[in-house]
Computed example of a mutant assay.
Amino acid sequence: MEGSEIMSQTSETTEENKKDILKDFQTSFFTMSRLASFPWTFLENDLESNKSSELISDILKQTCLHSLCQKFPPSVRYRRLFLSELIRRQEAAGSDPLDELYDALTEVVAVAETTECYKSYLLPSGDAVSLLENVALISEGTTGLVTWEAALYLAEWALDHRQTFTGRKVLELGSGVGLTGVTVCRSCSPSRYVFSDCHPRVLQKLRDNVQLSGLTERTSPSVSVEELDWTDVTVERLKEIGGDTVIAADVVYDPDIIGSLVQLLSKILRCSSAEVVPEILICSTIRNPETYSSFKQQLENAGISHHVISGPVSKVFPYDRVSAIEMIKLYM
Rank of each mutant, 00 (worst) to 15 (best):
Y78R: 08
T216D: 13
K267T: 00
V135C: 07
F295R: 07
T142C: 14
V313S: 04
E15A: 14
R34A: 14
G303E: 05
G141M: 10
P289Q: 03
P124V: 11
R287A: 05
A249C: 06
V76A: 08
S323M: 12
R77S: 14
N45M: 08
L83M: 06
V322M: 12
K169F: 04
N209H: 05
L154T: 01
S224E: 15
L60H: 10
D46R: 13
V225A: 08
N17A: 05
R88W: 01
P124A: 01
E54S: 13
V233F: 02
R162W: 03
H307R: 15
C185H: 05
C271I: 01
L179M: 12
D244W: 00
K205N: 08
A324N: 12
V210F: 08
D160N: 06
K71A: 15
T13F: 15
N17I: 03
R34Q: 14
E149L: 02
I268C: 07
Y193M: 10
S213A: 08
R162G: 10
N45S: 14
S4N: 11
S52V: 00
R34M: 13
A249E: 04
Q204N: 13
K19Y: 02
V276A: 13
S213Q: 07
L60W: 01
R89Q: 13
S33K: 07
P278M: 09
L159Q: 07
R79L: 00
Y102V: 11
D20Y: 05
A151H: 05
Q211P: 02
E279Q: 10
Q70H: 15
S272N: 12
G311R: 01
S273Q: 09
I309E: 12
Y319D: 09
A128L: 04
T164D: 13
T63A: 06
F38A: 10
S273D: 11
V111F: 09
S28Q: 14
T31F: 04
D160C: 13
S49C: 04
L137H: 00
E290T: 13
L123M: 09
E156L: 03
D208P: 05
Y292P: 02
L228K: 09
A92S: 03
I241A: 11
K315D: 15
K51W: 09
E54K: 06
Y102N: 11
S4A: 12
A151D: 06
E326K: 09
G311Y: 00
L152P: 08
R168I: 00
L101M: 04
N209F: 04
S260H: 00
C198L: 10
S52Q: 10
K23E: 15
T41H: 12
P73K: 10
F195M: 02
R88E: 15
T164R: 15
L137S: 15
V322F: 04
R237G: 00
T245D: 00
Q204T: 09
A155D: 10
V262L: 00
K18F: 06
S57W: 03
Q211I: 12
S120I: 01
K71L: 15
R77M: 11
L132M: 14
E12W: 11
S139L: 11
S310V: 09
E91F: 01
V233T: 06
E140I: 03
A151N: 07
E2F: 11
L206D: 06
N209K: 02
T216M: 09
Q263I: 09
R207A: 07
S53G: 11
E91A: 11
G141F: 03
R201I: 12
C271V: 08
Y118N: 07
E326W: 01
L238P: 04
I309V: 12
E5W: 05
C271E: 07
V182Q: 14
